[in-house]
């Protein structure tokens, strides 16, 4: 088992800033994941954890640094890295079966129609939608829609499963069901997975490692917490384990601590102000500045 199945090195996300210095959301993030590992990214809103995940997915351009998955540097999105989005993102004009089939056709170009059909049916059965394959998204509940989203992701037979707050919009009961579904699949398919979440319990229960990120901008890894529990995990056992509360407390204290630390943000504001002053000294006509500022906002 490779210790560096996913290798994120010196990752930077910077948005161009008209006032000089770029707006760097993520600054020099390093992270290695071994095959089959389940990693959580946790942190305050706007800390750039989703940015990291979308960069890994290939949906977001990488400004500096690089990401290697299974010995290949990634360039754009690909079916080896499947994503489950926060919203189910199903095509409303297709039924569950067709939604899953959408990607299957591309990933298995040489498969016969019958084989493709089996793959789709298997994936939907995996998430417990065997009886709702012909239903349209509008006929499915939020939880069931998200199950289709998961089925669509695993039907691609990905190497890496990326979960972008996949349960953010679901009630806690459905959330627990889907957590079990995902853990089950991940264990069986030996998927390397990354989940972005706000939910401390979820992070502790699901992951092998929890990555705590500092507040953005200039977000980087604040702390890493390893969680040593055997898989498969039983929810009741784990919730009864005193260690669970230790992990939980640790995570919460990190987050609370970060909540008071707004210094990073002030740094950025100072930068911004600084840039503006510089600019002002060059601008003769203040209206020009207005124009520049407006165009930036637009």
């Amino acid at each position: 088992m490779s210790q560096r199945y996913v290798e994120i090195s010196n990752l930077v996300k910077a948005y161009p800033n008209p006032f000089g210095d770029d707006f760097r959301v993520v600054e020099g993030l390093n992270l290695n994941m071994f095959q089959g590992e389940f990693v959580s990214l946790i942190g305050h809103s706007g800390c750039g954890k989703s940015t990291v995940l979308t960069m890994l997915a290939g949906l977001n351009e990488i400004s500096e640094g690089g990401i290697i998955v299974d010995n290949k540097e990634i360039d754009g999105p690909g079916p080896d890295r499947a994503v489950v989005f926060q919203a189910p993102c199903l095509m409303p004009w297709m039924n569950a079966f067709d939604n899953v089939m959408l990607g299957v056709k591309n990933v298995y170009p040489h498969a016969t129609p019958e084989e493709r059909k089996q793959i789709v049916e298997y994936s939907l059965a995996r998430v417990g939608l065997k009886d709702s394959m012909k239903k349209f998204p509008r006929e499915l509940s939020g939880g069931m829609q998200q199950r289709v989203g998961i089925a669509r992701a695993i039907a691609l037979k990905p190497k890496v499963l990326l979960l972008d707050e996949p349960f953010g919009r679901l009630d806690s009961l459905t959330r627990m069901e889907l957590q079990d579904v995902i853990l089950d699949i991940v264990a069986q398919e030996k998927l390397t997975s990354m989940i972005v979440t706000h939910d401390v319990d979820e992070a502790v229960f699901m992951s092998d490692r929890v990555i705590m990120m500092t507040n953005g901008p200039l977000a980087r890894i604040g702390e890493v917490m390893n969680i040593h529990w055997e898989r498969p995990r039983d929810r009741e056992e784990i919730f009864a384990d005193p260690k669970f509360f230790e992990y939980r407390e640790h995570l919460l204290s990190f987050l609370e601590q970060r909540a008071h630390l707004k210094s990073d943000f002030h740094d950025f504001e100072d930068n911004r102000q600084h840039g503006k002053d510089n600019l002002l000294s060059f601008v003769k006509n203040p209206m020009e500045l207005y124009g520049a500022e407006n165009s930036h906002k637009a």
Partner: peptide, 24 residues
């Protein structure tokens, strides 16, 4: 979001056009 899905699924131009853009 639909376009993102298309990107992740690596749909070609034509299937993106006929399966996602035109229906929507």
């Amino acid at each position: 979001d639909h376009l993102n899905v298309a990107k992740v699924l690596r749909l070609g131009f034509w299937s993106r056009l006929f399966k996602i853009i035109i229906p929507s």
